[in-house]
Design a protein around this nucleic acid. Structure first.
Lengths: 150, 150
DNA sequence: ATTTTTTGGTTTAATAATGAAACCGTCAAC
DNA sequence: GTTGACGGTTTCATTATTAAACCAAAAAAT
């Protein structure tokens, strides 16, 4: 190997995102953060991740601005990991992953957790629309390449 | 190590999704598939992935129903990898990742590729809404846990 | 028809990432 | 002031990824 290739220079925004959160554990940590977990031990226990790996992942997530390390709300000198505004912007990614899983990765009768509107208890919806509000799928879209001037 | 832990049994749909496409390369392959790539060589060249790893990832993606191996459209006896309907259902995930990258991972003046409506050339939008159509964020939602009966 | 090239891999050996377990300093509770 | 939990760090073994060499079959060129 020669160090895993970084996609930092890629012009594709998805690639850059994957460069930051595309490894095995990061999104699982973020998911649990959305779920309310904040402490090292909580993440470690809930994921069964090795502690040294968790340490490194948390550090990277903090370094890239997705999590922040703040003094614990109960006054002690301990710290806790919280989603930043940027981190919360990963919400659509989590919802999209959830939706895909619900549709394709569960047996018909199999139960799974659900993401619902806190106010009404109704499930939330994700949709992709054109500017005019019309729902749009992959076949009706194109990726516009940036043409590089010399 | 003792074999990487599988999340297959997890009740959380996001976790299951990550179990299938959460590794380093799979989503990049899928992104390129959305971008129109179909051949082994195309993926290999565009990603710079080691060939044996690509072989394995493609096999897994086919096995999980995201890609399928079909005779190439130009009649020859060669094969090409195409997104299945299930694979195309990853579209929202790709769009969400793209949106996150656009917002947070590019310098203000930096150029990036764009996903647009083929018909109008206008950028597509992704949004998450409550049943009543009101846009909804992570703080207004709860993950409803499945309670397991004994 | 024969040679050459491209395609789509497989194999092998080296290197990097990950994991489990042991260890350790600090803080909090008792 | 001792004990245990918390949040790591270190070490070592194992697994994953890579680059490079190799190879058979199909396509293209001659």
């Amino acid at each position: 190997m020669v160090a895993r290739k970084s996609l930092k220079g890629d012009y594709c925004p998805s690639a850059r995102s994957l460069d930051v959160i595309g490894d095995w554990w990061s999104l699982l940590i973020v998911r649990n953060a959305f779920d309310g977990l904040t402490r090292f031990g909580e993440f470690q226990k809930s994921l069964g991740i090795a502690k040294n790996i968790l340490t490194e992942r948390l550090r990277t997530l903090v370094a890239s601005g997705i999590l922040e390390l703040v003094p614990t709300s109960e006054g002690g000198s301990r710290m806790e990991y919280r989603l930043t505004a940027m981190g919360k912007d990963l919400f659509p990614v989590m919802v999209a992953l959830r939706q895909f899983g619900e549709r394709h990765l569960f047996a018909p009768a199999e139960e799974h957790s659900m993401l619902v509107d806190r106010a009404t208890g109704q499930p939330v919806q994700l949709d992709i629309r054109a500017q005019d509000g019309r729902p749009i799928g992959p076949d009706e879209t194109v990726i516009l390449k940036v043409t590089e001037e010399k």
